[in-house]
Design a protein around this nucleic acid. Sequence first.
DNA 1: TCTGGGGTCCTAGGACCC
DNA 2: TCTGGGGTCCTAGGACCC
Length: 391
Amino acid sequence: MIMHLDMDAFYASVEQLDNPGLRDTCLVVGGDTRRGVVAAASYAARRYGIHSAMPIFQARQKCPHLVIVPPRRDRYVELSRKIMALLEEVSPLVEQISIDEAYADISGCARLHGTPRRIAQTIKSKIRVEVGLTASAGIAPNKFLAKIASDLHKPDGLTIIEPDQVAAFIEQLPIRKVPGVGPKAADKLVQRGIFTLGQVNRAPRELIAHLFGKFGARLIALSQGRDDSPVVPHSEAKSLSSETTLAENTRDRTLLAANLLTQAQSVAHQLRAHRLAARTVTLKLKSADFQRYDHRSTERKPLRASEAIYEAALSLLDEVALVQPMRLIGVAVSGLQPDSLPVQQELFADAREAAHRKWEKIDQAMDDVTRRYGRQAVVRGTQASSDERLK
DNA sequence: TCTGGGGTCCTAGGACCC
DNA sequence: TCTGGGGTCCTAGGACCC
């Protein structure tokens, strides 16, 4: 059997844990800016119809006494690590899928920890006692059903789907609950009178296959209760990115470039933290009308210096017409590979690369200063001046 | 007053190679 | 003289998830 564990309103619950005065209040975690959205909503806030991804201004309209708390990523990561460690005490085979969610294969745990129900109770109580938060657990014969089960009786839920209940469960399961079926896929199905996974199961195979291609085959398997995807303990990141929504939409290249430098530095910092280098740099843009654009380029040699990433992103930006003002700009890197520091002398082939080496040293020095004196202690001249302009 | 910031996977077409 | 088939790498875009 597979267990899916899902923390309840994680960010919001952490804030209430650390500040008991906020308990039972209408609270959201999110950037308290004009353009922010809700990252997590407390259950009290949810009763007002507030949910994650909702614009903050809308949430405020729904609940006038709403408390808005800025996110504290580091704290969430810290507690996430504790929770995952507790889970690993119970099962050796744990797959973390986000900051607050994980699968555990508990097939081999019966002798040590008892029945699936007992195992779920154990982990839930450990999290409650040692961390102070509630989680919801779902247990089922496979990952797909376990995930849906954990969502069924939130918060503090424990739902088990026994093998002999699978068919009846699938029969009535709304398609929108199936992981991978979003608004578009749901529309296609509803247009053909298909509302439940049971109806998918009875629909002509060719129809489903034709509508969804590769995902169609998976959907058909799920409709038969089949999902043999394994619990995979650890997987490497395939991309890293940093992006920001600007205070105002802009077509000003200088302003966009200054932001790009900040993003490039953030990405370079992440690369260093993971001891990785990247061959592909992607410039991410979102225009005023919410159209998203990606432009990428792949280098022959992997990059790691902020300046190199910045240059690559900047030349991609140079090719963009900027017909519309942009609301978001960001940089992503992919094609990640282990950083083979130190680099041999012969790789200093040209002046550009030598310059990048210098920038790497500056990057590292900035890391040190940031570690000691905080994030605002050191910024580059171009950023300082763009900050001034925004004030 | 509009709508974040991270990710993953899939598809399709072109370049290029054998 | 009128054009194969397969494989890989790359770019752009879309859908989806938390």
